[in-house]
Design a binder for these strands. Sequence first.
DNA 1: ACCGAATGAGACATCTATGTCTCATTCAAT
DNA 2: ATTGAATGAGACATAGATGTCTCATTCGGT
Lengths: 192, 192
Amino acid sequence: MSHSVYGRLMSVDRTQVLRAAAALLTRKATATMDEVARAAGIGRATLHRHFAGRDALVRALEELGLQELEAALDRAGIDAGPEDEAVRRLVAEVEPVAPLLSFLVTENQLFEGEQVNEGWARLDARVSALFRRGQENGVFRIDLTPAWLTEAFYGLVGSGAWAVQDGRVAAKDFQYMIVELLLGGARRSVEK
Amino acid sequence: MSHSVYGRLMSVDRTQVLRAAAALLTRKATATMDEVARAAGIGRATLHRHFAGRDALVRALEELGLQELEAALDRAGIDAGPEDEAVRRLVAEVEPVAPLLSFLVTENQLFEGEQVNEGWARLDARVSALFRRGQENGVFRIDLTPAWLTEAFYGLVGSGAWAVQDGRVAAKDFQYMIVELLLGGARRSVEK
DNA sequence: ACCGAATGAGACATCTATGTCTCATTCAAT
DNA sequence: ATTGAATGAGACATAGATGTCTCATTCGGT
C-alpha cells in the first residue's frame, strides 16, 4: 500500500494539478487523461494516483470550481448595497473562474437528468436571491424571473469566456460587455 | 456495393433520422451511435449506411442546423425595419432550432483551433450585420461590439433552450425572456 | 550518505464505441 | 408471385482510452 494517509509530504500539489487540468479541459473538453497529465507536467500514473479516474478528476474540478465561485460570491459581497452594483462586483470576481465555470456547466448538461450536485443548488440559490432582492428593491425588472436571470448570468459569463478565448472580445472588455448587456441590454433608448 | 445512387427509393428518411439525432444529441451530447440509431427507430447498421460515421453525422447535423438557421434568418426578414423588432422576430424564428444551435455551438468549441465551417462565418456575419445596422441607426448602443452582441445572442438562446428543457423556464416565456434581456437588460431604471 | 516515499515510464489487460461485414427478412414495385 | 433493394440483427475486428501494475529512479528528510 503506497497511499499517503493525509497531507504529509507530496511532491505533487493537488491544487496545482487541478488548475492545469482546468486550463486544458477548459479549452479542449475531450482531452485525454494522458494529455491532462502532460499538461500538468506529471506522469499519467501519478495523475491516477491522485485521482481515481476521469470522473473523480472532473468531480474534483467541480469542487474546486464551486469553492472558487463561492469565494467569489463572498468577496463580491452580494448581500450588501445596490443590487446592480453587486452584480457588477460579482462579474468582476467571477472573471478568473469564468472558463472553468463554462466547462462545468457544459459538463453538467451531459449528466442528462441525473441528480445535480447540491453545491450547484446552493450557488444557484445565492445568485438567484441577489436578483430577487434586486427586484424587491425596485432595481431589477420583475417580468424576468430570478431563475432566468441566473441562467442568463451563467450563459453570458460562458459566452464571454469563449469570446475572449477566441479573440472575438478583448480580455479587458470582459467585465464591461457582460455587465452592460446583462444589466442594460442592447437597446439604446428605453421606453419602459 | 449496396449504395443508393441518388434519391430514389429509400425506406429511411434521411432528414427524419437527422431530426431524431438532433433531438437526442441535444439532450445527451455523448449519446452513442447505437443510441442515436434506436432513437431514430432504425438499426445501427442502417445508420452507418447513411452516415459514414459519427463525424459525418455531426457534420450533417451541422448542415441541417445551418440551413434551418439561414431559413430562420430569411423568414425573420432581418434586413427590414427597426432593428430591435428584427431581433424580436429573429428570436421567434430561431426558437425551434435553439436546442440544435446550442448543441452545435458546444460541439464547435471542441474543435479547439481548427478551421471553422464557413457556414458559421456567414451566419455570424448576417447576425452581426443586424446589430451593426442597429447601432448605425441609433437603435442599439455603440459601446457593445456587434461581435459581442452576436455572441451574447447565441449564448442567451442556448441558455434559454436549456432552461426550458430543465423546466426552469416555461416554454411559452422562451422568446420573451431572451428578447427582453438581450434588448433591455435586467435593470429597471436606466440612467444612460 | 542513507532511507523511504513518491514519481515517471512503460507494459499490460480491459472496456467501450466504432466501423465493417454477412445473412436472413421485409417490403415495394412490377 | 417474383424480384431486388433496403433493412435489422448480430458477429467480428479495430482503435482509443482507461485503469492497474511493476520497476527503476529521483528527491526530500534525517
